[in-house]
């Protein structure tokens, strides 16, 4: 993916840059708002990562508002040291698609970037079923089959699996699951998500020979088709 990174802190910038490049992305960078805005308007990117606070008059929200004002719908991920609910709401209201607070784990950022990039692709066609390897989800009847065998899932388990399937091959973090599957934005204190995923595994993986839901250490989970 082609990514623009606008961040003034050199340590954070080089850290993110290195990580994204290692993950196989093509990254342009800017260390101030003016250059950032120039690149964001002039070039075509799959994703823009914007620091909210930037020196020199033009900050992240200004850039975001400007490009949105030009009907540019490139997904934007905001980076910020402010974790206040209000700031988050401000950022999303200004047209941001996701929000990550500093300090963050790189795995969290990468997972969210890839999820956003994916979202850009399959927005158009409304599907009625999802298939990954031998797993099929019927979105209308809410029926799940693996290897032709029917699996009974609770509504929430179905949504969890649906999210994993939609992001098959990508790492999804626990916070992402809490936010996207449960729509919760608080700190759950315990490993609630792990427990739910492990319940899902009991039904989706345990009865079969190969597992498709995998734990990624220090990051989260990934659903990978069984054939690989």
């Amino acid at each position: 993916m082609r990514i623009l990174l606008v961040e003034d802190d050199p340590t954070v910038r080089s850290f993110v840059l290195k990580g994204l490049k290692e993950a196989g992305h093509n990254v342009d960078q800017a260390d101030n708002g003016k250059d950032g805005l120039y690149l964001a308007i002039g070039e075509k990117y799959d994703i823009i990562i914007l620091d909210r606070m930037l020196p020199g008059g033009i900050d992240g929200l200004n850039i975001l508002e400007t490009i949105r004002g030009q009907k540019n719908n490139t997904p934007v991920l905001l980076l910020s040291a402010l974790s206040d609910v209000d700031d988050r709401v401000d950022g999303l209201r200004a047209g941001g698609d996701d929000y990550v607070t500093k300090p963050f784990a790189f795995s969290e950022l990468l997972a969210r970037v890839e999820a956003l990039g994916r979202r850009g692709h399959n927005e158009s066609a409304p599907e009625t079923s999802l298939t990954v390897g031998d797993l099929t989800l019927d979105l209308l009847s809410r029926e799940v089959r693996r290897n032709g065998q029917k699996i009974d899932l609770q509504p929430r388990e179905f949504r969890l699996l649906e999210f994993l399937v939609r992001h098959a091959g990508q790492v999804v973090t626990r916070t992402m699951l809490l936010e996207k599957v449960w729509d919760y934005h608080f700190d759950p204190q315990t490993n609630v998500i792990d427990v739910h995923v492990s319940r899902l595994r009991q039904k989706v993986d345990k009865p079969f020979e190969t597992a498709i839901i995998h734990t990624v250490r220090n990051a989260g989970y990934i659903l990978r088709p069984a054939q690989d």
Binding site: W182, Y184, P188
Partner: peptide, 13 residues
């Protein structure tokens, strides 16, 4: 109800 559903799994665990 939603919170109970979320934590019920942890409790059972």
């Amino acid at each position: 109800a939603n919170m109970a559903e979320l934590y019920e799994a942890s409790a059972e665990d």
